[in-house]
Nucleic acid binder design. Structure first.
Lengths: 157, 157
DNA sequence: TACATTTAGTTTTATATCAAACTATTTATC
DNA sequence: GATAAATAGTTTGATATAAAACTAAATGTA
């Protein structure tokens, strides 16, 4: 009885409200929003069938002549076995290529193909649009403050 | 030539630095940190073999007598087919149970078993610990400001 | 030089996740 | 009341992801 009364009370509604708007939930939601945004933008630009992680690889390769698998793994913060699968898919799509190091044959380099290079401006545009949406209505001070507070959280773990 | 010069310049290093510390990357990193934190804490408390999503379900069920599959899906923001799989696993672990609605047989209710109920304090503690870590060194003002800025970003999508 | 250790990547296996197709039931409309 | 539309869940198929075991090559050490 008492329990049900409490469950329908303003207090419990407030708690529920807090739960859905706490920083951790918000961070999780924003990440999903960013993901959806990027996938939608990629699809709109004709880059279909690939996930954000594939985009991350292309984005991280853009501007560099080549990277090792381990470097890509570190750069996009995905396990090396995951990167093996992701790069394989990008090879199938002819967007990147692999080549073995001549001196140390353990090492495999990944680089963009011309077709992959051609996507550079697309990803730059998406990145731009993302930042525009993300920071709409933000003053320079607010941007700095958000970054400062996020870094503070980051260092708390 | 020029290209390589640029790639080793301070400017490019600054760009790389910015890339790894922009708000989007930070949000992504923090989410991963939080995930790892929760999984580690669960393992430490003997709640092993389940992912954060399973924890989310138990957490959202705690305090409520029961929820429909659709409600759980909405609450943890996962597709209904995903929830089917997650709940099935929790049933195998005897942490939750299902029952069909008597009047509308399409509806399935999910609720915690006694064994699942017993985890309530564990999850409350984890939630507590998480907040403590997350906000270490934060003033009340900073907490409010972070929440405000994150909500602002959230509403920009 | 031989053996152990480290390193780079891949394969295997398992899981979370979602979209699309499907089943079963309820509600709406004619 | 019969048929269409909507709703709640599940099943199926595909993919990203990671941990663990593995392969192959380079490096260190005796």
């Amino acid at each position: 009885m008492l329990r049900n009364k409490f469950e329908n009370s303003l207090i419990s509604k407030y708690i529920v409200f807090m739960k859905t708007t706490d920083a951790v939930s918000l961070i999780s939601k924003i990440r999903e929003q960013v993901n959806r945004f990027i996938v939608a933008e990629m699809a709109e630009q004709g880059v279909e069938g690939i996930a954000t992680s594939h985009g991350d690889i292309i984005y991280t390769l853009a501007g560099k002549p080549r990277m090792t698998m381990a470097e890509v793994s570190r750069s996009i913060r995905k396990d090396k076995s995951t990167v093996t699968a992701l790069v394989d898919k990008l090879i199938r799509l002819e967007l990147v290529q692999k080549e073995k190091d001549a001196t140390d044959t353990r090492i495999t380099f990944v680089s963009l193909t011309p077709k992959g290079e051609a996507l550079k401006p697309v990803f730059e545009e998406i990145s731009h649009k993302l930042m525009d949406s993300f920071y709409t209505g933000f003053s320079v001070e607010e941007k700095k403050e958000l970054l400062r507070l996020l870094m503070k959280v980051h260092h708390n773990f």
